[in-house]
Design a binder for these strands. Structure first.
Length: 585
RNA sequence: CGGGGCGUAGCGCAGCCUGGUAGCGCACCUGCCUUGGGAGCAGGGGGCCGGAGGUUCAAAUCCUCUCGCCCCGACCA
């Protein structure tokens, strides 16, 4: 492709809304064009890169028996009502009516549609297992799109669904998809970290998120440097250290009411009482599916909304409005577990009866000192509902302290089980070899395609621009023709014609100055740059520059093809030595 | 949804406080010239100053309301 015809319009300065590297370079490099918040057009360069990613995904999924389909984005609301998601999902799901007043939704994933398909066609155990996937537009009215392509409202997602005889069959299949994911990301040039993820209210027997460690990620996960345990902070469990003892051992003074006018926050209380965080109980009020719940943690911890929701099996969980508290006779800022009998109280496992705490007295401007769990209030319901912290000891091996990392979620694999095939959902069964009906068991697996492109740029860039891996670069080689002397032009065109039969070439034929051409070549990140200039033409040489390493070599034109073959072989990302999951035969 | 910031040419910005002919750099077009790191000279096109209402002889500028965009947080099948 000649640059002059390629619809590439790079920007010298980035639009001011762009802050993360991928966002800046995608805009500057003429890969994407914003239409509205979280809505982007893919320009030719961006489109080509995305198509390459999709090709890699298809190759890997086809290799494990996946069958590609395409399902509609517009779904009848009825289907979503059947599974309950119509009611469970908030404003993120776009709902509308057609001209005949029928209700529809714009699909954010396709569990309903694909299960409907399976219900129709899967009759016999002979039809299972089967894995169907698609690469299709997904629509989500995100509350806050951000960072260019990292979080958007309309995007292409590879979503895959597998159907199985039973959980054993799903368990046997799961490593295949897990390993395919590792290969997909590796082939795109990314070192992904699979972490244990929260499987939400569905319970389920397993879920992994594939993370790219990145300062611009929005997710947090823990890793144990000793045993390799890694999990989303929403799910991760650390060992909660005991408190340092204080007061006289064996003496448990009686509970005592202390006036604390206007002292509401833990920070204020620490100043007031002169004690550290771990001697306070932090009580937070939530409304879980319409019911008031108090969550109590030791104050050096924070409540994990995900863990609490999981424990309560709640679909909707939110902070309780102050009005609700007031109506129940409770006071924000002075909440505590003592003397409450009508409201459900969940205590974190960090709370033990071994020593007293300071807690809210449930009346305005009052706190209680020397509150002993078990004595002054009942520890009726205890669960791990606290967020893991950096430095908590690993609960898997007990040998090292957990580290918290930031990352971008590249993909998610999930043993769904029977949430969608259950009788009260899509009621999907098959007949086994003895003619008995059995429930189909499912898995689902997603990858955000444009996010993957943005992630590659987050990982592979420098000051000057993007540094694409050869596997997903929009072009393999850019020929920068410096000068317009007839010999130089002839040489550039000769290379363009010759190399074009085996590789994708972007031939910069513009009459721009040398500086502009070289800067643009760096910006758009084509992995190999060939420079043709007057000086080089005289000696019959071509300059080769490798974008990722910056390595430059001068190569005689006659050796060019062999040299490039070796270079490209070298640049191919490896899929060896990944943290593969063992596959059963 | 809460907090903060910003809307003036495709992009980056000045002008606004103190009302009076809408500007600069880059990009774009024409010509000459030039080709190893965002050249040079000359000429040129491009604006409902986000929108609506108000104050005023007069509004990019002052007032009110609205819409949009970005960042932080909340939320995220």
């Amino acid at each position: 492709m000649r640059y002059s015809q390629a619809f590439i319009h790079t920007l010298f300065e980035a639009p001011k809304e762009a802050e993360t590297p991928s966002h800046i370079f995608l805009l500057r490099g003429s890969f994407v064009y914003p239409l509205a918040a979280g809505l982007y057009s893919l320009l030719p360069l961006g489109h080509r890169a995305v198509e390459k990613i999709k090709r890699i995904i298809r190759e890997e999924l086809d290799a494990i028996g996946g069958l590609e389909v395409t399902m509609p984005v517009v779904n009848p609301a009825e289907l979503w009502k059947k599974t309950g998601r119509y009611f469970d999902i908030g404003e993120e799901l776009i709902r509308f009516k057609d001209r005949r007043d029928r209700e529809f939704v714009l699909a954010m994933t396709h569990e309903e549609v694909v299960t409907d398909m399976a219900k129709q066609f899967v009759r016999s155990y002979r039809d299972l297992p089967v894995m169907l996937y698609q690469i299709q537009t997904k629509i989500r009215d995100e509350a806050r799109p951000r960072a260019g392509l990292l979080r958007v409202r309309e995007f292409q997602m590879k979503d895959a669904y597998s159907f199985h005889h039973d959980f054993e069959d799903l368990d046997a299949y799961y490593p295949k998809i897990f390993n395919a994911y590792l290969r997909i990301f590796a082939r795109c040039g990314l070192n992904s970290t699979p972490i244990e993820a929260d499987s939400g209210i569905m319970g389920g027997s397993g879920s992994h998120e594939f993370m790219l460690e990145s300062a611009n990620g929005e997710d947090h996960f823990v890793v144990c440097p000793a045993c390799g345990y890694s999990a989303n902070t929403e799910k991760a469990v650390g060992i909660k250290p005991d408190r340092t003892p204080c007061g006289d051992a064996g003496v448990d003074p009686a509970m005592e009411k202390v006036p604390t006018p206007g002292v509401k926050t833990i920070a204020d209380l620490m100043r007031f009482f002169g004690s550290s965080e771990e001697y306070f109980l932090k009580t937070v009020a939530y409304v879980a599916d319409g019911n008031l719940v108090l969550a109590v943690v030791r104050a050096d911890f924070n409540v994990s909304v995900t863990k609490l929701a999981g424990h309560l099996k709640a679909v909707h969980l939110d902070y309780a409005p102050e009005k609700t508290l007031f109506e129940t006779g409770l006071n924000a800022g002075f909440l505590g577990p003592v003397g409450i009998d009508r409201v459900r109280i969940v205590c974190d496992t960090s709370i033990t009866g071994s020593a007293p705490y300071i807690a809210g007295a449930n009346e305005p401007d009052m706190h209680l000192k020397n509150v002993l769990p078990g004595r002054d209030f009942e520890l009726r319901e205890t669960a791990d509902i606290a967020e893991v912290r950096e430095g908590d000891r690993c609960s898997a091996c007990g040998r090292a302290d957990l580290q918290i990392r930031r990352g971008i979620e590249l993909g998610h694999t999930f043993k769904l089980g029977t949430k969608y095939t259950a009788r009260d959902s899509m009621d999907t069964t098959y007949l086994d070899d003895s003619g008995e009906p059995n429930r189909v068991v499912m898995g689902c697996y997603g990858i955000g395609v444009e996010r993957l492109l943005a992630s590659v740029i987050e990982r592979w860039h420098d000051q000057a621009g993007m540094q694409f891996p050869v596997t997903i670069a929009p072009y393999h080689i850019i020929i920068s023709q410096l000068g317009n002397q007839p010999e130089v032009v002839a040489m550039a065109q000769r290379l363009y014609a010759k190399l074009g039969s085996t590789r994708e070439i972007l031939y910069d034929d513009r009459s721009e100055s040398a500086g502009v051409k070289l800067k643009d070549a760096d910006l758009v990140g084509i992995p190999v740059r060939l420079v043709v200039s007057r000086k080089l033409e005289k000696t019959g040489d071509v300059e080769i520059k490798i974008r990722q390493t910056g390595e430059v070599r001068i190569c005689p034109e006659k050796d060019l093809e062999a040299t490039l073959d070796a270079i490209f072989k070298d640049l191919e990302p490896s899929i060896e030595n990944l943290p593969y999951m063992e596959e059963k035969a």
